[in-house]
Design a protein around this nucleic acid. Sequence first.
DNA 1: TGACACCGCTAAACCGCATTAGTAGAACTT
DNA 2: AAGTTCTACTAATGCGGTTTAGCGGTGTCA
Lengths: 342, 342
Amino acid sequence: MTRRPTIKDIARRAGVSESAVSFALNGRPGVSQGTRDRVHRVAEQLGWQPNSAARALSGERAGCVGLVLARPAHTLGVESFFLQLVSGVQEVLASRKVALLFQVVEDIDAECALHRRWWAEKRVDGVLVVDPRAHDPRPALLSSLGLPAVVIGAPAAGEEAAALSTVWADDSAAMASVLAHLHGLGHRRVVHVAGLPGLAHTERRISSLRTEAARLGLDGARSVTTDYSDAEGAEATRRILDGPEPPTAIIYDNDVMAVAGASVAAERGIAVPAELSIVAWDDSALCRVTHPRLTALVRDTSGFGRLAAQELLDRLDGAPVRDIQAELPHLEPRESTGRRPG
Amino acid sequence: MTRRPTIKDIARRAGVSESAVSFALNGRPGVSQGTRDRVHRVAEQLGWQPNSAARALSGERAGCVGLVLARPAHTLGVESFFLQLVSGVQEVLASRKVALLFQVVEDIDAECALHRRWWAEKRVDGVLVVDPRAHDPRPALLSSLGLPAVVIGAPAAGEEAAALSTVWADDSAAMASVLAHLHGLGHRRVVHVAGLPGLAHTERRISSLRTEAARLGLDGARSVTTDYSDAEGAEATRRILDGPEPPTAIIYDNDVMAVAGASVAAERGIAVPAELSIVAWDDSALCRVTHPRLTALVRDTSGFGRLAAQELLDRLDGAPVRDIQAELPHLEPRESTGRRPG
DNA sequence: TGACACCGCTAAACCGCATTAGTAGAACTT
DNA sequence: AAGTTCTACTAATGCGGTTTAGCGGTGTCA
């Protein structure tokens, strides 16, 4: 139950004023090198750390950034994406001693309310925004509050990202590469089992599928949307396979649905990849542990997080808004894709 | 870029002193009902929220609790456990407007350093501790700092949890129920593919397996440890199946390894459950999407998180240290377990 | 040699809130 | 009518930092 040391303690032991201590510890001019060293030594010895509340109060930063995840609770924990992203984010933040406030909420209204509260409470210096969507209310809100933010993922087509930086991967090009792969294997009827309809990247992938399919002359290509859960992924797969002219290849928007789809095929005795090819968007342990292993679109998710965190820190340091493109995801062919049957 | 309203603004508009505002907003005596109402109305109108830094500084709480995850980055994101736990934790915290500081670090030394820093910075009012392990340095550290904490998971046998509350599930009983299930199906040779060796619950499960197996007369029962990854899960499975007297049932300490194990069996043409039964400790979408679906030990992970968060809040309110036992996990039999072959 | 700039430091104000001490006025005693 | 107790409020202080203003002492230069 030790008492926390303060700069007052340091000042007393070093025989200087509190202001001198503050100057010394923050590398500001106004103290001689000798005094500076002495103060640092005493601070170290006392194990002093700045009280974050006091810092935040005196006009400075809170030393903290926020990340809100607006997803219904039951769809959480099935995807590896977020923990990976967060771990990348933290690598960068931790190196600068910035903390991460993390919260899961039910929907986007709750998310907006939370941003507003964090701002009013002066709890965070900036926020990371994930899952950009069509008609997204968050960019406008955040810029009206003057809260620096970085959007992770490309905004919906046609929408300017207000005054927010964006870190994104080119989903359109990625979709094109998947279709090229399938087309090269002879597939002509392809279905895309997409994620949540409101999300910007979902719409982007859907529209890219359409234009790219038209270009390649794949006329059966279409998308269906889901909530990303294994249940809806399986259900969609059943409907697709039961429909007229079932496809010879299916692209799933996440790993969980892809595995669920593969399982439905197995259940029905449909051989993968002999009769049906499967591609997962986002690689994970999941894709490697199933049998056959799934061909997947690999992206460096934690690298993505690192990029976003770095950009947010830069923004806090006054850097201008930027638009950063992450490395293009690449396709990792495994055993779940093969030549078109017949 | 609106300015944040402060109690000074409220005081001015309501025509009273700042102290009166503070009393009114905090439900303290010393203001008439009329003034109280007026202050509340003005505060609402201005959209005032207490500045968390100022609150924390003036002796009060930081309004924030911490959770550190000490796992090497590559083992992250494969398990659904943590996001589920965190989402449960937050349900409770959010209802009390307490924020969650979340950080992922490489190892337990980094975790200890972080706890120390958070304490010194007065960033958190208390912390949640996960993955208790044998010879765990954290309880002693936290109690010497006087930082309220709740340990999630039972401490290693023989170790007192210092002055920390504990929320735990009875792993021994759970292991017993799994063995009873397998014994009932006629299995006599069972292997347990456990997780990280240092963790308290790993050791608990291992020792429970041993005593329970002895009681039931299963003499081939043994445990091997891994790092929880799909790679080590698969590797362990190969070694086990290649060894002398291969088991007829395998218990895996998480879902990912169980699926990886099932995949190894499939690869080798070993039929599940006809030739090999598989049990996963911890249910998830994963166990339901594979084919055959995996028999799993189900626990209410987010409920676990809720319990822990509630206990931490109680501790912050001055409640005494408690030892809370969560609901016993129950076994959900699916298609991956069946009668012993032969 | 006086004016001026510069260095190294201290004193004091301030951030937004909680809290303690104090105070004016009304109500109640006796 | 003077003393006491309440009520409803204000003034002042402190939390732990940052920051601005100011102040002696020394060096520089005209």
